[in-house]
Simulated assay, not measured.
Amino acid sequence: MKGFVQDIEDLAVKNDEFRRVIYTAKHCQLVLMALKPKEEIGAEVHKLDQFFRVEEGAGEAVLDGVRTAIRAGFAVVVPAGTNHNIINTGSAPLKLYTLYAPPNHRDGVVHHTREDAEADNEHFDGKTTE
């Protein structure tokens, strides 16, 4: 079977990696993320659209300076060109997944920590999961 069909909530809640790319299609990419308490993704701007879904924990989404409290069940859509950040403001890990459209990272990449992600200058190389 082509494609991805799995329990994304379960995968997201069990994930302890800062970033784990789990599926890359030609026009979008599915990535698990886990932020430690007080950790953040870091302010960034993409030339692509991005969607976040929070599965566990509490935090804050910052889009072009506007701060909004988020928690399990919240979705955040970040249009291309928007300065954005996701911050864990809670005392437990913030578990979420994100969709990039088009893909942003190398398929299968795993960054155990934010520091690992920042040290790795990787980008999508055109190779998909299938």
Score class of each variant (00 low, 15 high):
5 V>M: 10
6 Q>G: 00
6 Q>V: 08
7 D>A: 12
9 E>R: 12
10 D>T: 15
11 L>E: 12
18 F>M: 07
19 R>G: 05
20 R>G: 03
23 Y>H: 13
28 C>S: 10
30 L>M: 13
30 L>H: 03
42 G>I: 01
42 G>Q: 05
44 E>Q: 11
45 V>E: 13
47 K>A: 12
48 L>P: 00
48 L>A: 13
50 Q>D: 00
52 F>N: 11
54 V>K: 00
55 E>N: 12
55 E>M: 11
55 E>A: 10
62 V>F: 06
62 V>E: 14
64 D>T: 04
67 R>E: 13
68 T>V: 13
70 I>R: 02
70 I>N: 04
71 R>I: 01
71 R>W: 03
72 A>E: 04
72 A>W: 06
75 A>Q: 08
78 V>Q: 01
79 P>R: 02
79 P>K: 01
82 T>W: 02
84 H>Q: 14
85 N>Q: 12
87 I>C: 10
89 T>M: 06
91 S>V: 14
95 K>P: 11
96 L>H: 07
97 Y>P: 05
97 Y>G: 03
102 P>Y: 12
104 N>G: 06
106 R>T: 14
108 G>R: 08
109 V>D: 00
110 V>C: 05
111 H>G: 05
112 H>K: 15
114 R>F: 07
118 E>D: 13
120 D>M: 05
122 E>A: 09
